[in-house]
Amino acid sequence: MLHKILSRLKPGGTGIFQVLTKLRDYSFDAAAYLASPTSGDVLEMHALSFDVVVATVEQAGCKLVLASEYDCVDHAGSESIEFLIRKSGSPGRDPLH
């Protein structure tokens, strides 16, 4: 999903997003998850490692400008990072300017 979103960014465009990059004792099994769906009453949090986020940014033709810790998750052993990225290439000519 992240790759798809970043791929839609226009050349020269800038994006900012936040991702939970560490969650203590986190694991995800898609088959088990789909076999027993939750009621929807509980907040679900999933993590994507910093290395995977950076690789996805690069695969989408973007460069990482800044990554900084974003203290928004109140769970011991967790880490959330805010990413500032820029899409490679020059922005197209704006016909209104």
Rank of each mutant, 00 (worst) to 15 (best):
M1I: 08
M1N: 09
L2A: 00
H3K: 11
H3P: 01
H3N: 07
K4T: 14
I5P: 01
I5V: 15
L6R: 00
L6W: 00
S7D: 12
S7E: 08
L9V: 15
K10P: 03
K10V: 15
K10H: 13
P11N: 06
P11F: 06
P11V: 05
G12C: 08
G13L: 06
G13R: 04
T14E: 11
T14F: 12
G15T: 05
G15E: 03
I16K: 08
F17R: 04
Q18C: 13
V19P: 01
V19K: 07
L20C: 13
L20M: 11
L20N: 06
T21E: 03
T21R: 02
K22Q: 12
K22P: 00
L23G: 02
L23W: 01
L23A: 02
L23T: 01
L23C: 01
L23Q: 03
D25A: 10
Y26C: 03
F28R: 02
F28W: 07
D29F: 07
A30I: 13
A30R: 10
A31H: 09
A32Y: 05
Y33M: 13
L34R: 13
A35M: 11
A35P: 02
S36G: 09
S36Y: 08
P37Y: 07
P37K: 14
T38S: 15
T38L: 14
T38V: 13
V42T: 15
L43F: 12
E44M: 14
E44V: 15
M45G: 00
H46V: 09
H46Q: 08
A47P: 05
V52M: 13
V52E: 14
V53D: 06
V53E: 04
V53C: 15
A55I: 04
E58A: 10
E58K: 11
E58G: 01
G61C: 06
G61F: 04
K63R: 11
K63M: 08
L64W: 03
V65T: 10
A67R: 13
S68A: 13
S68Q: 15
S68M: 13
S68E: 15
S68L: 12
E69M: 05
E69F: 05
Y70D: 06
Y70S: 09
Y70W: 12
D71T: 13
C72F: 09
V73F: 06
V73T: 12
D74W: 10
H75W: 00
H75V: 14
G77I: 04
G77C: 04
E79A: 13
E79F: 02
S80F: 06
I81A: 05
I81E: 03
I81C: 07
E82R: 14
F83I: 05
L84D: 00
L84M: 10
R86T: 11
R86A: 08
R86I: 14
R86N: 04
K87M: 05
K87F: 04
K87C: 02
S88P: 01
G89T: 05
S90Y: 08
S90P: 01
S90T: 11
S90F: 09
P91S: 11
G92P: 07
R93Q: 08
P95I: 07
P95N: 02
L96D: 06
H97N: 06
H97A: 08
